[in-house]
Design a protein around this nucleic acid. Structure first.
Lengths: 131, 131
DNA sequence: CGGAATCCTCGAGGATACTG
DNA sequence: CAGTATCCTCGAGGATTCCG
């Protein structure tokens, strides 16, 4: 069901953790609306745990700064988990949290709807991941 | 299903009408990612056809400029229909197109997921609209 | 390897005033 | 009533360089 704040209550803005939204959808977009966030989330949903370098390659032409930044924000929002293995050289792995996985209900339609504008002739690919 | 472009094909970007996306979700966000677009779309989905003034009030504190601009873009993307009634004074009505309605599969989850961050104590409201 | 620190630009979004 | 037309700001996003 679609929820929109009633007209007469629209002025009393809705508060999310210290931010003001006029609509619940803004709360979601505030978390996944970054330039690379949906790409990152979809990638992790597909591939499971990934390292920095792997994501850099998969998300090319993303820059290291943007990847780090977006990952940090996603982590702060509790959507992904960052694990550091104290090896030499350092090894860092990122994966979705439970909350991150819950986003599939959003990412899925977002992806499906967008595919109609993507003229690709390559056959659809099904990398299985948790149902 | 979540679709992400494969790593080795990520460089050959996907083309939407004259724009470049790295992921199908970007195509969707490109159309609904404007500051007020989801609010506008949800509002029209709920209320049906609405006039400029009605939307101004419902979306307060939106400005006239932003409303016009976002509506124009949504119309250009074929998501809403603008109808002018040649009366005096002028009367303009906006409503969702078929394509706009198809966005409910996206807006719905977007809204549902976001509600968890919206601490509202008012009971959920069910304005019925087409199933 | 996996970052952090700087610097810069460019355009989305807002305030304000005018118009048919 | 339903818009344009201007002007301005401010921060997301990108390029580049350094670090443990």
């Amino acid at each position: 069901m679609i929820i929109t704040i009633e007209a007469d209550k629209a002025n009393s803005d809705i508060m999310g953790s210290s931010k003001t939204y006029h609509n619940p959808t803004e709360a979601t977009l505030d978390r996944i609306g970054g330039k690379w966030k949906t790409a990152i989330l979809c990638l992790l949903a597909e591939q499971g745990a990934l390292r920095n370098g792997e994501m850099m390659r998969a998300l090319s032409p993303i820059t290291q700064k943007m990847l780090s930044q977006q990952l940090k924000e996603l982590e702060a929002d509790g959507l992904i988990l960052r694990t550091v293995f104290p090896e030499v050289p350092a090894k860092v792995v990122y994966e979705l949290t439970k909350n991150g996985w819950s986003l599939r209900t959003v990412l899925d339609p977002l992806c499906e709807w967008g595919k109609r504008f993507v003229h690709t002739d390559k056959p659809e690919q099904n990398h299985g991941h948790q149902p």
